[in-house]
């Protein structure tokens, strides 16, 4: 039932948001695009990391891999092929590293996923310099803004729908079991290794596809900008603030943060990040369940009043 509600909400959101390129200003469109991108990133991150408590800092790596699929394929691969291919490349990368590092837990897992992302960035930087004799790539003749917008919209909605479907499925139950007590889940018949690797790869697919889709908006692609750790941190922050174990929490907080970022980051770059840092600390200390936990607490009180 909840799944049906979520899917209906996705369909309605799609119908409402699809005509935006022909109705709103360029600035509002770019703002919406940014919101949608972070909705997709945060929801897919929470789908795996929120459920399993495996704190992945590899989002920037997946995103960057997707972006480079676009960059390398530019001129030969059509946009409609590059986007899913970017997602697949990221998912394959995630499955490969997941098989190797998903036995590590806690801070070690977080740090190694971050390290692997940096490794990919440095490897691409080095490879481009050595073999392609370039530090970045120019995207000439990108697809129309309307196309990019619709593709990102479709990806964000697909991420939400997938997350809703996963939550309602056996696969989602297995992920939650891993997050709660991995060994217990194993003794009840869950192949935790497979489940974790699959979940990690599925989340990576969306990050990679979004990277591939958005990359064409930048005229110049270089490792430092597409593997920007800020994208990864911002994703984690959004999901945690919203409540990583919920579906609606990350969506709401993605919208709030994207708007704030777009409005404030250019004018007050340092002050904005200082506030962001302080906010993250305060939230972890005083509201570790995210904003969604406030709502849950309120609902609980209503019921028990």
């Amino acid at each position: 039932m909840r799944l049906a509600t979520a899917l209906a909400a996705c369909a309605i959101a799609g119908l409402v948001l699809a005509p935006a390129p022909w109705l709103v200003s360029d600035f509002a469109l770019s703002l919406t695009l940014s919101c949608l991108m972070y909705v997709g990133l945060a929801v897919s991150w929470a789908m795996f990391s929120g459920a399993t408590n495996y704190l992945s800092l590899a989002t920037a790596a997946f995103f960057g891999i997707g972006a480079y699929v676009t960059a390398w394929g530019h001129g030969t691969l059509p946009y409609a092929v590059a986007v899913p291919l970017g997602g697949l490349a990221a998912a394959l990368f995630a499955a490969a590293i997941g098989a190797a590092v998903l036995h590590l837990r806690g801070a070690y897992f977080a740090v190694i996923t971050f390290g692997l992302g940096e490794l990919v960035r440095h490897a691409i930087t080095y490879g481009e310099k050595t073999w392609a004799r370039t530090v970045g790539r120019v995207i000439s003749d990108p697809p129309a803004t309307e196309t990019v917008y619709l593709v990102v919209l479709a990806l964000a909605l697909a991420a939400v729908a997938t997350a809703a479907a996963v939550r309602a499925s056996r696969f989602g139950l297995a992920l939650a079991g891993v997050g709660s007590d991995e060994e217990r889940a194993r003794t009840l018949g869950v192949n935790t290794r497979l489940v974790k690797t699959g979940g990690f790869a599925l989340a990576a697919f969306f990050a990679g596809a979004l990277g591939a889709a958005v990359a064409v908006r930048w005229t110049y692609i270089e490792p430092a900008s597409v593997f920007n750790p800020f994208i990864g941190f911002q994703t984690v922050l959004i999901a945690m603030v919203g409540g990583a174990h919920t579906l609606a929490g990350p969506i709401a907080s993605a919208v709030v943060f994207s708007v704030l970022t777009e409005l404030l980051r250019l004018q007050f770059p340092y002050a904005y990040l200082i506030v962001l840092g302080a906010l993250l600390i305060l939230l972890v200390l005083y509201l570790p369940g995210g904003l969604a936990s406030l709502l849950e607490r309120w609902k609980w009180r209503q019921r028990h009043a």
């Binding site: 704190l55 806690g106 990040l273 840092g277 993250l280 600390i281 972890v284 200390l285």
Partner: peptide, 15 residues
């Protein structure tokens, strides 16, 4: 571990 890691990121931004 998880929470101190996030607070660490916050401190990194801040400082």
């Amino acid at each position: 571990e998880a929470r101190s890691l996030l607070v660490g990121f916050g401190l990194m931004y801040l400082v």
